[in-house]
Design a protein around this nucleic acid. Sequence first.
DNA 1: ATAGTTTTACTGAACGATCGGTAAGTAGCG
DNA 2: CGCTACTTACCGATCGTTCAGTAAAACTAT
Lengths: 211, 211
Amino acid sequence: MSSSQEQKSAVGGGNGRNGRAAYDLDAVLDISVAAFNEHGYDATSMGQLAARLGTSKSAVYYHVNGKEDLLRLALERALGPLEAVLDLPGALEGSAEDRLRFVLKQAVHVLVDYLPYVTLLLRLRGNTEVERGALERRRSFDTQVAVLVDQARAEGSLRQDVDSRTIERLLFGMINSIVEWYRPGGSLTRDQLASDVIAVAFDGLHARGEP
Amino acid sequence: MSSSQEQKSAVGGGNGRNGRAAYDLDAVLDISVAAFNEHGYDATSMGQLAARLGTSKSAVYYHVNGKEDLLRLALERALGPLEAVLDLPGALEGSAEDRLRFVLKQAVHVLVDYLPYVTLLLRLRGNTEVERGALERRRSFDTQVAVLVDQARAEGSLRQDVDSRTIERLLFGMINSIVEWYRPGGSLTRDQLASDVIAVAFDGLHARGEP
DNA sequence: ATAGTTTTACTGAACGATCGGTAAGTAGCG
DNA sequence: CGCTACTTACCGATCGTTCAGTAAAACTAT
């Protein structure tokens, strides 16, 4: 009954001319987003996408309505999980500092778990209505975190000498940059990365600071 | 005798049909880079560039060899000043921590002073040889800073519980993100921003910590 | 000072290539 | 037969780029 999304997916599919190949939407999306992230959305043509999928250009149009539709579907996969973080119990209960720590840690988790999709989101320029809509949702997320920073400052747990909007920007600058270098499967695990980020953000780089 | 580059520059140029309009290379570059940053390099056509310059498409080709040449010239304006930081006395003398602090602060200064050009650099995808060359130089810069982080750690001034390469990435994630939100002319000055970044990076967000 | 020449800074039209997208037809399945 | 998952062929638009021509400024010669 539940809407399933994993069925066949002949992703790397070396399907030749045998039977039915049957790409599903997930496979098309995964490969398309990978291409978008490698060359940029605008620099990636539908022809290149088709080549990577091992099919013709118009076969892609069987699965999606067009290039922009592909982008819209991909961005939803990043924005959905990200926005969901703010509704989790950990983001709603406890001290402002605890809630901030929770949201930041979860943001890192979403970033890593949906790495290609979030990467795509973070590189938007706002050229089309779809892009501007996604940027708007992202801005809304940032604003909600900025409120958390403000509350933590009012609580007295955060330094007062740096503007709170600046703090929020620098925090997400640090976190968002993860998509540019982190690749799962290495020695640095997702959870280790998240706690490293929180540690550096809250305690700084200095060696001192008794645990 | 010296090769001068500042001469006329009818940038916003409301040149009608009088005399010679005379754009110089600087004006063309400034306007082009602004357009690249607004819509992305690939999504910006030579036609749009010409429209913003108030001339025809082919007039642009009088000043530069082509779109990629425009990119190459613009990237040099970011990479030159950035690489120069590492040759300054402050980057070569003193303790590793002092040298690291100096380089980070100077990096923020370059970022702000050449904001549009550095912004363009930080958004490259490596589609062409020009882009790959620039990315290579940027990677080399990052590597040299990573060495500084390593030395500061060996000195005992930096925390040992986070991998030094991770530290360098997070540091530059924070610094580079500045191009996405900082605009000169506001209440936050260039120098204030630089010391905010250093303060947050080294001491963290926590309120505690006697100065 | 004037005429002739060269250089500068463009214009408008056109080029082949590639873009996103579509129309019509079809092979393999139940 | 009818449906799914394509294929080949093609469309108009736009891309970066080129080219022949030209008006105005700058330089040179008389």
